[in-house]
Design a protein around this nucleic acid. Structure first.
Length: 154
DNA sequence: CGCTGCACCCTGA
DNA sequence: TCAGGGTGCAGCG
């Protein structure tokens, strides 16, 4: 049974989907059928998101998330979920702890369909921000929300 | 220093 | 197979 939710964030609408009480998708777009939306099912998650966008320190690490079937990506995502609020890691750090290469990590993260909960925005390049599948501007805004300041540097 | 080239490992075609 | 990706580092000037 798949359920859909729509959350209006300051950075634009966020669509979510869950299956068997696991989040399978969370993305910055209005890509769900409005008629199917059942926001009551996501009350806890949306509560966190509301606090998150108010700049509060919110963890999502207890929210059940559907891991990809792909073994390698599952390992990368699991590693990235360990990164706490406000913390930054480099592609290389993830790569080293997994015995792989930074490029492969970027590859896997670009396939992330559960933004924020799997905090791929907290993974940056050695010099600068690196990239972001949903746009570098969004990555920057999320990091600023978490107390970082890029206004002078990047 | 800044720039270039190549190795790094995994995907998708 | 092979090209290429959200990178990193050595080597050169």
């Amino acid at each position: 049974m798949i359920k859909y939710g729509l959350f209006m964030s300051p950075l634009g609408p966020i669509s979510v989907a869950s299956e068997n009480d696991e989040i399978v998708m969370l993305d910055f777009c209005k890509c769900v059928e409005t008629t199917l939306v059942d926001n009551n099912s996501f009350r806890i998650l949306f509560d966190r998101l509301r606090n998150y966008f108010e700049g509060k320190k919110v963890e999502f690490d207890d929210i059940p998330v559907k891991m990809p079937q792909n073994h390698f990506r599952a390992r990368v995502f699991k590693e990235v979920r360990k990164v706490k609020w406000g913390q930054l890691v480099r592609y290389k750090d993830i790569a080293d702890s997994l015995g792989t290469s930074p490029r492969a990590v970027g590859m896997a993260l670009s396939k992330n369909s559960v933004l924020i909960i799997i905090p791929c925005h907290r993974v940056v390049a050695e010099n600068g921000l690196g990239g972001y599948s949903r746009g570098i501007g969004l990555k920057k805004k999320l990091l600023i929300l978490e107390g970082h300041n890029f206004t002078e540097s990047v």
